[in-house]
């Protein structure tokens, strides 16, 4: 039963990521990404990490992607990238994707294999995660939050500058 659910979710997840890349319409790409995030949430839930599952859905599917789609629908881009820019964006994105792929492969090879059940069996309740975040991982947690705030302030500053011109 669980293995069936796993295959259904992972097929939908990989399929929707492919759909996101192939789709010409940005709005459809964003919607495919939402589907992929929701399936990822389901997979986290199956691993016995309900908190991760729900946070995945609230933050990625429920908040970030809504803003993405909001902007895409407001701007309504039809043309895409112009042909002269297309050449070098293609080159740059090829290089970046090869680097990311290499990183991913090394990361996966570097992690010791873990049995399916042991991966998330302990410490997945909200209390455990909260305790870890505020003791062992306090500095990474605080630094990440400062980073996010800096990004927010930066975005506001950029928008304000354009208004003055």
């Amino acid at each position: 039963m669980m293995i069936l659910l796993f295959f259904v979710l992972s097929v939908i997840c990989v399929g929707s990521v492919l759909g996101m890349i192939i789709s010409k319409n940005q709005a459809y790409s964003a919607l495919f990404l939402v589907l992929a995030f929701s399936c990822l949430g389901g997979l986290f839930g199956m691993l016995g990490a309900p908190f991760m599952a729900v946070v995945q859905i609230i933050i990625y599917a429920g908040a970030i992607m809504v803003l993405f789609i909001f902007v895409i629908m407001m701007i309504n881009l039809r043309k895409g990238i112009s042909p002269e820019r297309k050449k070098w964006t293609l080159a740059v994105s090829a290089v970046i994707s090869v680097v990311l792929l290499a990183e991913l492969v090394f990361a996966v090879l570097g992690t010791p294999p873990m049995p399916y059940t042991a991966a998330f069996s302990s410490g997945t309740s909200p209390t455990d995660i909260g305790r870890l975040l505020f003791t062992k991982y306090l500095y990474p947690f605080e630094i990440t939050s400062v980073l996010i705030i800096a990004a927010l302030v930066g975005a506001i500053v950029l928008v304000k500058k354009r208004e003055k011109e």
Partner: peptide, 8 residues
């Protein structure tokens, strides 16, 4: 959180 996620 489940309720909030589904509402969002």
């Amino acid at each position: 959180l489940f309720v909030l996620a589904m509402l969002s």
